[in-house]
């Protein structure tokens, strides 16, 4: 199977601990919450961090709060929670529907709102194994010098 590279591991419980962990090795750290994007990317060797900071246990980031000034969503709210939350469904039905249409049920159970918003590039030239990318000649985004576009005639952006 595709392996994960070696890395060290931190599992902070609070935002404060998280910030400390992140500042420990700047540039060599990867934040993982649900892992639905980060873990495949690690398997693809798109990231090779020294340290993985798993923030799934940070309770402070797990909330849906309906307040006067609007709806507050924690970064660790899963897409499944977002899709089925009664307040979200009532007041922001398109958000609930959008969250419910992402990928499949297991990925929605795992994937978080924060992760979804901070998602790394999704591209058929990028989200591939190290071997495949080497056969491609690599992309600018990782290990390469040139950019690849999926639809060269219609899209100007990578």
């Amino acid at each position: 199977m595709l392996t994960l590279p070696s890395f060290e591991w931190a599992r902070p419980r609070t935002v404060e601990e998280t910030l400390a962990a992140l500042s420990d090795r700047p540039g060599e750290t990867l934040v993982v919450a649900g892992g639905t994007d980060a873990v495949p990317n690690l398997k693809h060797r798109l990231h090779e961090p020294r340290l993985v900071v798993h923030i799934g246990g940070v309770r402070e980031l797990q909330f849906v709060r309906d307040a006067e000034d609007g709806l507050h969503l924690g970064a660790l709210v899963t897409l499944a929670e977002l899709a089925r939350h009664p307040v979200v469904r009532r007041d922001f039905p398109s958000l609930a529907r959008a969250a419910g249409l992402v990928a499949g049920p297991q990925l929605r159970n795992m994937g978080t709102l924060g992760g979804n918003l901070c998602l790394d590039t999704r591209c058929t030239y990028y989200n591939q194994t190290y071997f495949w990318r080497s056969a491609l000649g690599y992309c600018l985004k990782k290990d390469g010098a040139a950019a690849w576009r999926r639809t060269p005639r219609t899209s100007r952006r990578c």
Partner: peptide, 22 residues
């Protein structure tokens, strides 16, 4: 064929890119 590689690279050798029905 494209700059960087020759012809014949699989379009996307995964069950994400090669779509089979759910």
């Amino acid at each position: 064929e494209a700059p960087g590689h020759g012809a014949g690279l699989h379009h996307g050798p995964s069950l994400l890119d090669y779509r089979i029905p759910t």
